[in-house]
Design a protein around this nucleic acid. Structure first.
Lengths: 340, 340
DNA sequence: CACCATCGTCGATACGCATCGATAAATTTC
DNA sequence: GAAATTTATCGATGCGTATCGACGATGGTG
């Protein structure tokens, strides 16, 4: 592998000049810049990352802590990972994977060995042994998701409260007076996972404001529980029933349950789910969705991280950013009455 | 951050002694080892990765090139990524993500900058601009999946031919004389993607041997094409129909189509799908599966990589490893007649 | 008891780059 | 036209580790 010294020799300049051509931190004449660039080209020189990190104390690598995954969420996690990696590249950074099975020790390892300049933690919910560690680290940490106690942490997440509001508003506008929310599975609700509570609160706020009745019933992937929730929702509804299923994993099952009850989304029942636009369009009946915009959340997480890195921030930071959600009508919800 | 020099000072030894304690490359007396270890503990010393890489010319990082993903495959990709990352840690290595949107330049970048000691490429199929690059790189490269021309490359993949054979054998043993294979979508078949051809060949080999008739019909996520394939399969079947759906993405739709034709898997139709055991168990009717063992493939890929790194191999390598697939009976296939 | 391995430790150096101070050359100022 | 600036480049140094040769101490041998 050629070194900057080789390049310098080929271009007839000093090694430091090569360095300055690359970094632009000192003025270089057009003439020598050309010479150096030609030499770089010819030798296909690429700076050695290790040496660069050693000298500059920056690795240009961001550690991404990925959660242990109940199988069904994997697809959505990959969406985050993929966008995070691409976005990081746009800021000229790379992504190193840190798996959850290393626990908090993993964070200390990658930071302690200075493999990473900062960390992005995905799907941190409630309590977590890694949170105190995250707070104590001397590198920037960005959380995707909001823990019970976000103090001293930089967090970003979809605006679940807004999402809840949007769903209820939308269904109210379509004429529904009772809305059934199929929540996450009971144990998740009981844990008071932050985003669940926020979503529920959003639905309640809108419901109170609009005089709509909102039922909260447990979701999850268990057919019987889900069927039970649906039936309870139907029983308590007068007029056309409406369902909101913010948990992406229940939708397939929900659809089948409704179908077995003789209900057709968009015709005699409204359904708002959570799915990416492409997936929503692929459904037999294109699904009206509340889009939690994982891609946008990921992009912003990386952006925040890179800004923190740029600022070379010393003291601890704290912030909380919520990404607006987007509701999209497709065929699974009733159309609002004309003129409404 | 403390350095090895700090540790040396605290322990009253030379920096090089600290280094030897850590690497074990020279004998160290019990006494000084204890002293050094105590100092390391006390200072919570961790070696600097950049300096280590610079001096040793090894980063202990493996680049993982993840494919651009048609949405539906994301879950399975995450399975690979997750196991690869965990396994790498077991070999004391880390994983750096290289996204496909950087193309072949991405490979040259991470290798050229010496961020990585080696590369694992996922889901390389057919031709790919990265293959010639992979061959020319001076670091080990392991492919998951087999390209059209695997010469000069180290590849590993599930044994799709074995999988095809196992499926047909199994259905034949259950008494089926006609088996319908719902292939991947037509365009994938037409591209003669390596694993597709291998799977189909496997089914054909077993069919010829056992005197079973095998129909190949297009799959994919389009309901109409799929329904058409199912109907054609049914029309050409005498006796109880049997379907093999090696493409995980078609299974939901296939199930519904069969159901709408009044057929119940395990009762008056046999279905073998491809899914992880956990997912298969979650189905309304637990799905008999051909398991392509992505986790095992991932583990072996990392193992091969680490062996290549250990060997410090100079010349180019070439090998091809196939991971045996596993067929598992659940409730979606007929039971073989007793005594068969 | 002088001689020679062996073992354990030290000091020095290289790895490739960034960066600082210094210097030579070019330009401006009075 | 000499002094004061500015501009472009060079040389030297440090980043933290691995590794090599050297060296003192220890123990065994004749």
């Amino acid at each position: 592998m050629p070194t900057s010294k080789d390049v310098a020799q080929a271009a007839g300049v000093a090694q430091s000049t090569v360095s300055y051509v690359l970094s632009g931190k000192r003025p270089i004449s057009e003439k020598t810049r050309k010479k150096v660039e030609a030499a770089i080209e010819q030798l296909t020189y690429q700076p050695n990352a290790g040496a660069r990190a050693l000298a500059s104390r920056k690795t240009r690598v961001i550690g991404l802590v990925i959660p242990f995954i109940p199988e069904l969420h994997m697809a959505s996690i990959m969406e985050f990972v993929s966008v995070i990696a691409s976005t990081a590249r746009q800021y000229d950074h790379d992504i190193l994977l840190v798996t959850e099975d290393e626990g908090a020790a993993g964070l200390q390892r990658v930071v302690g060995q200075q493999i990473c300049d900062g960390l992005i933690l995905m799907q941190v919910e409630g309590e977590d042994e890694r949170l105190p560690v995250a707070r104590s680290l001397k590198v920037p940490v960005v959380l995707i998701g909001i823990p019970r106690d976000p103090s001293g942490l930089v967090c970003i997440d979809a605006d679940f409260e807004m999402a809840g509001e949007q769903c209820v508003r939308d269904l109210a506008a379509a004429g529904h007076s009772v809305v059934t929310v199929i929540d996450w599975q009971q144990e998740v609700v009981d844990r008071h996972v932050n985003y669940v509570d926020r979503f529920m609160h959003g639905t309640d706020v809108a419901a109170t404001e609009l005089g709509v009745k909102v039922l909260h019933l447990p979701g999850g992937t268990n057919r019987e529980i889900l069927a039970d929730s649906v039936d309870k929702g139907l029983a308590q509804t007068t007029g056309v029933p409406a369902f909101i299923a913010p948990d992406g994993t229940v939708q397939d099952i929900l659809r089948r349950i409704l179908s077995s009850r003789g209900l057709t989304p968009g015709l005699d029942v409204s359904v708002i789910g959570s799915a990416s636009p492409t997936l929503a369009e692929l459904q037999p009946i294109p699904l009206s969705t509340i889009d939690l915009r994982p891609g946008e959340v990921s992009r912003r997480a990386v952006k925040i991280m890179c800004q923190l890195l740029e600022a070379d921030s010393l003291g601890p930071h704290e912030s909380l950013e919520l990404v607006p959600t987007v509701i999209t009508h497709r065929s699974s919800t009733l159309r609002p009455p004309h003129g409404a």
